[in-house]
Design a protein around this nucleic acid. Structure first.
Lengths: 219, 219, 219, 219
DNA sequence: GGTTAACCGAGACGGTACGTCCTGTCTTAGG
DNA sequence: CCTAAGACAGGACGTACCGTCTCGGTTAACC
């Protein structure tokens, strides 16, 4: 799973590659549905590439226009701001999000989840994009909305993991899954982005074990 | 403790007020040590105010110069970039960090810590500054360094809390304090900044309880 | 005569109102002759209104399209440039040009002519249009052609005035009428447009008298 | 006189060459008097060249910036609009205006004046500039002001011509010089710019003779 | 209490990007 | 056949900051 991500990540950004965006909706019969500019894919790709290369501040509309071979006005016609453009670019990326893990044990599932998070945050090019976007969510309302949505969506997908765990008796029934996910994701964020520390290899199992014990103990 | 913070936070940003910056170092005997421009305090104050008002992207050197009544060149003479200026401005703030809590129980101490973190992230004006800075650390090396330092420092100060807890038998001796702090801080960050959710009032005790159980269980 | 112009000028631009453009030529029997878009009148009116409001530089094809309720492409289909459009718009206006005066004396006729010219140049809305068009003829070949034509036409119409004057013995037979017209029109242009001076009320008779004396003296 | 103009006009625009602008005022001792950008001369030259080449509409600030090797912002720092820039550029030109003629007879003086005017309006590069500026005065308030000033100045300089003529008994004492100048200049303008007719070689003497007769006859 | 070196104000400048307006061309659907 | 609709590349607009520079003046420590 995370493996799939890693494999692809070495050659091209899969998680955030928007090149399939609108694949099926763009045309229907002969009629343009007008859901974006003709070169939407190139624009999104350029935006994400530039974001990974130069960060949110270094990302400019003009730069995106130039790299995607589109006129600046075309971008402004469709998105009012950098944040909105980036938000749209991430839409296409989201659909490629990996399925939630099902390893048979809660421990395994959560380790897979945390592994995915840390990989996302540390392996280029997804790391550049993810870190920039999450960091920039601080400044841009549009991005914040997308980030929120991303987390909500992520949590919804992990729900079965917890349902199964409760069924297996691995967790008390009144466990708060959001708290567990936040603890895991938050610890990774602090360690990787704020502390800028390398992750030793037992960070993932140790963190998961701690959180799990906490979940069981307080149940 | 947290009370002290709150009290102050309601009227003025204490944690990040740089106006006492260099208070003791600026002069030594009668000699100017040349460690900054004459109006350093005004500059730092202006920088932090503007940061809180407009966020990192909206913060401009020209704006700082104008508000602080200083010429633009003066700022450039001393700091090469926005990040560096902000880093310097935060230096003075750090020294006002509150003493680590000592409530007599680990639970109480950690609740005080988490409370402080959430207050910092949610109560203006510190919230604007803290969130902006931490978010911008993504883009700026100078800020990243300061954030790292901040976390390291924070951890060092909390150390006695854990030492005492171990002495009291509340924690196993081989506990990793950094992990616990990261779990707490990270959960708050995810909840407040990324998810943009309001914190219900038992978020703090519940999170601390979970983390604590985890720490004990895995010991 | 000039009175007719004045009367109309106070309420609506008659001299340059194109709303009757193509009235008779547009259809022949039941067949469309394809000599212009369906909303030609609206387009011309819009063009002239906008010209009077914002001058030649401020006049844009998009503005005309919007005001006339026509798509931009429709205008481009029929006229290749702003100048050409304006030229066409002026065509309809010309047909409303007033008949040359016949007051019984050359002096009277020329005063009527000069009066008409000054009225045209000073009374809105014709003043806005006339001054703009004549000024813009400097930049646009199409407009220049129309202006030329206008002057040639004007001269042709005044011809009877001079013929009658020669017959009456008021002018030598070898008088150059064009020179006289140019002197009158030119003086008005310089005074009104270049010098921006108000015209005192004996400007017209005095100028005509001077020119007439010149014509007689050199005959 | 007019000869001088012509001679120079064949090689370089003298009447409108601004390259000596501010020659003496720019610096005083070592202090910059701040009366314009450092490359004011280049800017003015570029502006006038481009005006002659492309007309007023085709003249762009960006074009001027590029040709004069200056940044666009530098131009905007000093002049708020195209009209203002052009106005300033003409200031330097004006100071090179030729002295009024003194041929000994009014006829000769006025022929020289009209000759100068027609030369200005027909001989490149001054023709391009003069015609464009006078035409554009229609659209731009700043230019209009300069044109007014130019004419007032021109008239003031011609004053001695008329004073002498009255003294010589060539003109009645109550002659209106402005009217005569306007008749001459206006006729030239109509003929050259509005009618676009070539000037046959006796246009100048014939026109002057007519106007002179008129002046004498009405005196 | 005058010297001198560090510091500052002022502001011009080349430059990048902003976000907007208009140009003139095109393509496609529809009356 | 004409028109509506509108996307598009392109160019210029006028503005805001960037970071650099030069050049007088001002401070203030130290003789």
């Amino acid at each position: 799973m995370a493996g799939t991500l890693q494999d692809n990540a070495t050659q091209r950004c899969v998680v955030f590659d928007a090149s399939v965006y609108l694949m099926s909706e763009e045309r229907q019969g002969n009629t343009r549905r007008s859901s974006g500019p003709r070169k939407a894919e190139e624009i999104f790709d350029a935006a994400l590439e530039l974001l990974a290369e130069k960060g949110y501040e270094g990302l400019t509309i003009e730069g995106v226009a130039q790299r995607s071979g589109v006129n600046k006005t075309t971008i402004y016609r469709w998105w009012p701001s950098k944040g909105a453009l980036l938000g749209a670019a991430l839409l296409g990326a989201r659909r490629l999000d990996l399925a939630p893990p099902d390893t048979g044990s809660l421990q395994g599932d959560l380790e897979a989840l945390l592994h995915m998070i840390t990989t996302l945050l540390t392996t280029p090019p997804s790391s550049g994009i993810a870190v920039s976007v999450l960091g920039a969510a601080t400044h841009s309302t549009e991005l914040a909305a997308h980030v929120q949505e991303f987390f909500a969506d992520r949590l919804a997908r992990e729900q079965p993991v917890f349902t199964r765990a409760v069924a297996r008796g691995e967790l008390p029934a009144d466990t708060d899954p959001m708290l567990l996910v936040d603890l895991l994701a938050g610890a990774a964020w602090v360690r990787v982005v704020l502390r800028r520390l390398p992750l030793d290899e037992d960070f993932v199992p140790r963190t998961v074990r701690t959180v799990l014990e906490g979940a069981r103990g307080t149940g």
